[in-house]
Computed example of a mutant assay.
Amino acid sequence: MTRTRTTPPSAAGTTAGAVRTAALPVAALLLALCVPAPAAARPADPALPLPARMADTGGGGQLITARARTPRDTTGTVAWWERRNGRWRRAGWAPARFGAGGLTEGRTRVQGTSTTPTGLYDLPFAFGLAPAPPGTTVPYRRVGADSWWCEDNASASYNRWVAPLPADCAAAESERLADYPTQYDQALVTGFNYHRPVHGRGAGIFLHVQGKGATAGCVSVPAGAMARILSWVRPSRHPHLAIGTAHGPTALTRY
């Protein structure tokens, strides 16, 4: 608390004090008129590359974006970007497919809804039945007959690659990777619900090769594009995958 010392004013002092008090609001008003108001927040320039308009890109020099027009759409575009000398440039793009249930906010997604989770994710490793494309530097695991992705909510191995299938992970609740030779010819694991899995939120969300239609929640691209992405990704550049829509609460620019 601040204390103010009070001195009994003279008559002249009282008059002068009154004048100063009366003049104070006028001076404050003039000062306010002279000081410009803070600039209102402006939307990002639509001419800027998509990563430059995003709230976060993961802090690295590589970014993959997967964007649908609306949350109801099951198709869209995947693009991959590089940052050089502080500027983002697109290195490639491809048509994409999303979950049969469309897209939904990743933090509240529910397993079994066939929705693709929106958000920003790292890329822990890659896998495939086929050999890694030439130039691949991301860790790459070959799929074998006993390679599974555990999606059993009751298992301690929930949302993990396992080989062989552990006793506490039901086969009916999981994916035997070799059973999907087209989709898992080559794939990248996303960090969705991976590092601290929340049971019931979802498991096995990948960027993989396209099959015949929409996915069960993954993002898929043509085989040629998948091979180019795997050859392009560099772990040293801390790549991330951002999934979202063009507008609204799940807009890609919000992540």
Rank of each mutant, 00 (worst) to 15 (best):
G213F: 12
G213A: 15
T190M: 09
T75D: 13
A132E: 14
A178Y: 07
T104L: 11
A145F: 12
L177K: 06
A187Y: 00
L188S: 08
P181L: 07
L207F: 12
L188P: 07
F98K: 11
A156I: 08
P124C: 05
A154N: 15
A94P: 13
G211F: 04
T182E: 01
T70C: 03
D73Y: 05
F206G: 04
F206I: 05
A100N: 11
G144A: 07
G213I: 09
G99C: 10
A156D: 15
R97C: 02
A132Q: 11
V189N: 04
S114C: 06
G102D: 07
Q183E: 14
L177S: 07
Q111P: 05
A94F: 13
A96I: 03
L177D: 08
D168M: 07
P124Y: 02
H195Y: 13
L129F: 00
Q210K: 04
S157R: 01
G202E: 10
N85S: 15
V78T: 13
G119R: 13
T116L: 12
S174P: 00
A170Q: 14
G99M: 13
R83G: 03
T115G: 09
N193L: 11
R72G: 04
T77F: 05
P95I: 09
D122E: 01
R87D: 13
P71S: 02
Y184D: 04
V138W: 01
L103D: 00
T108M: 09
S155N: 04
L177A: 08
D122L: 04
E175C: 03
A130C: 07
T137V: 14
V78N: 07
V198N: 07
R87Q: 13
G101D: 09
R107M: 01
T113L: 10
S155K: 06
R97T: 05
G106V: 00
E151F: 08
S174L: 02
A126T: 00
Y121C: 01
G211N: 04
S157K: 00
E82A: 10
W81F: 08
D168R: 07
I205R: 11
T118A: 15
A167M: 06
Q183S: 14
A145P: 11
A79E: 11
A187L: 00
G76C: 04
R160H: 02
P133D: 03
A130P: 03
G99A: 10
A187I: 01
R176K: 09
G101A: 12
G101N: 11
V209R: 03
R83D: 05
T137L: 10
A203Y: 05
T108R: 14
P71T: 00
